[in-house]
Structures are given as C-alpha cells and as structure tokens.
Amino acid sequence: MNGRGAAISLRIAQAIPVVIGVIVISFLLTRALPGDPAVQFAGAAATPESIEQVRQSLGLDKPLPEQFIIYVGQLLQGDLGQSVSTGRPVIQELAARLPASLELTLVALILSCAIAIPLGILAATRPGSWVDQLCRLLVTAGVSLPTFFTGLVLIYVFYYLLGIAPSPLGRLDFIYLDPPHVTGFFLIDSLLDGDPATFMGALRQLILPAATLALFTLAPIARMTRTAMLSALGADYIRTARAAGLNRGKILYGYAFRNALLPVVTTLGMVFSFVLGANVLVEKVFAWPGIGSYAVEALVVSDYAAVQGFVLAMALLFVVLNLVIDLAYSIIDPRFGADAK
C-alpha cells in the first residue's frame, strides 16, 4: 500500500497552499481593503498622532509586498498584534479562550452525532415509518433554526420558565472555582482534579449552549446519514451479501453502514464550518468566554487586530480539522489515493 502512504502525504502537503491562501486572504482583509487600517487599528479613541504611530509601527507606509513579508514574519513569531481593548497580545487572548470554544464545539458535535447518526440509520432502514417522518421533519426544521434564536428560546424555557438551567452567563457559576488548568476543558480538568461538584457545575452550564449548537448540526448529519444509508442499502453488494445468507446485523453494520460512513465523514467538514460560525453566535447568547465572544466584543470596540487574529485562528483551526477528517476518511476507504484517474 505504498500508493496510499504517498496519497496521505500528498493530502498533508495539499494543506500547505491552503494555509498560504488563508494567510494571503487574511492579509488582504487586514491591509488591502478600502478604509485606512491605521485608523481602524488605532481604535476608536485615536488621535492623529497615535494613528501615525500605528501606521509606522504596522509598516503601513511601506509598499504592499513588503508589508506582506513583514506580516508573515510577525505571524511566524506568533505575533498577531496587540489587542487594543485589553492591551495584551492577541495571540495570548485567543490561546486563553480557545479551550472554552473547543469544549463547547466538541461536546455539541458529539451530542449531535450521537443523536443524528442512529436517527439517520433508523430512518433509512424503515422508510416511510414514523422514525423516517420524524427524521425528515427534524432535518428540514433543523436547518431553518437561527442558532441565536434557538439559544434564546432554550434560555427562556429552561431558565426563566422552568428554572432548571443555571443563568446563561459563562462556563461556571460564581460559586465554583475554575478547576486547575491542565487541558483547559473544564469537564476534563475538574475530573482530573477529582472535583465532581465542579464537573456537574460545568456540565450544567454547558448543556444549553451545547444543545443549541447540536440542534443546528443535527440536520445535516442526520440527512447525510439517511441518504448515504439508503443508497448503500440499495447497492448491488448488499444484494450479494443477502444472497450469500449473511445475517441482518452484518449486512446493516458491517456492509451498509461502513460504506455509508464515507459521505457522512465528508459532510462533517461542512458541519465543522457551520459549527465554528454558529459558535460565535451561541457564545454571544450564553456569554460563553470563548474566542467567538471575544471577537464579538472586539468588534463592538473596533479592536481590529483582535478580529483579524480571530478570523485567521479560526481558519487555521478549520484547515487542521479538515485535514483530520480527510485522514480519517483515508483510514476507512481503501480506495483513497488509488483513484488517480
């Protein structure tokens, strides 16, 4: 399987031009668009002198190609500029908040996969049944849900009306102390610390925002699972397996599902794109201290270095996630890299 190893290396190599493209676009967004970036970067309370100072410190008086080289140089040193609003380097701000966003996103994705994939399979194996109808309704309604609105409705119902959810402010109620920082994921850190009370507290805070995001991502995953499962079940090799007398479980899971998984995994890339975007809105609604709400706050105070740093960080994160998805795909599909034609 030498060809496959080569194909995997090729896939990793293909990420490089994409990363370069991402850097070029984020450079263009920062420097080359209408409006004076110096004014933007100096912030709202800038004086002409401070703007001039910013211009020089950012190298904005130099020609574009030179600016690009400086920009790349800064990136390589991990320098995304200073956050005007907090006065700290943007990279530090993002690093401090990234675990909160990742924890929320991953929990939501696990939650939605855990519901959507079985739902899609059930719907595909019983076409026309109530499960199928439910799945179709969920799928159409799910993609129509504005996440920020779903979040508000959940807050209204579970916090205001029923009073069973904690107040939608952040990752942990004030009565708990943050668990010692190991992974940055409160759920994991609190367990490592042997502190079940904090774990429950963090979980209670997490449930509503994660459910909001999960509701949003449920639809595409369930839809793709259902479609992929239906087409796999209709395939010729399923007929062969049936004619050979294989039992239902083997046919369904060993043959159909493993094949159906391929398009589902591919869809996950798109789902990540949606979920990282929706993350921003959900974090704002639930005052979740992740990089999304940081970016929104930065937008309000025109802290452009922070916003651009956020956009770049999200893009790089997404490139990595896509790479992981493709590598996962290559493990499931032996044809990966063989379809040279």
Partner: peptide
C-alpha cells in the same frame, strides 16, 4: 438456505462486491 443451499451470482460484478472490504474477508464472512 441462501449461500449454503442456493447461491447467486450477478451482473456487474464490480458493484456486486463491497468496495471497502478485502475480497478475502468477504469470502470469510460467508
């Protein structure tokens, strides 16, 4: 009965095999 007493082969043989399972394993399954 299927596979043990009565067996079947099909047209379009490439599609009749599970594309992501080694052919040896497909025989073992039966």
């Amino acid at each position: 009965i299927r596979g043990r007493e009565i067996s079947m082969i099909f047209q379009n043989p490439r599609a009749a095999l599970n594309p992501i399972r080694k052919v040896g394993h497909q025989i073992e399954d039966v």
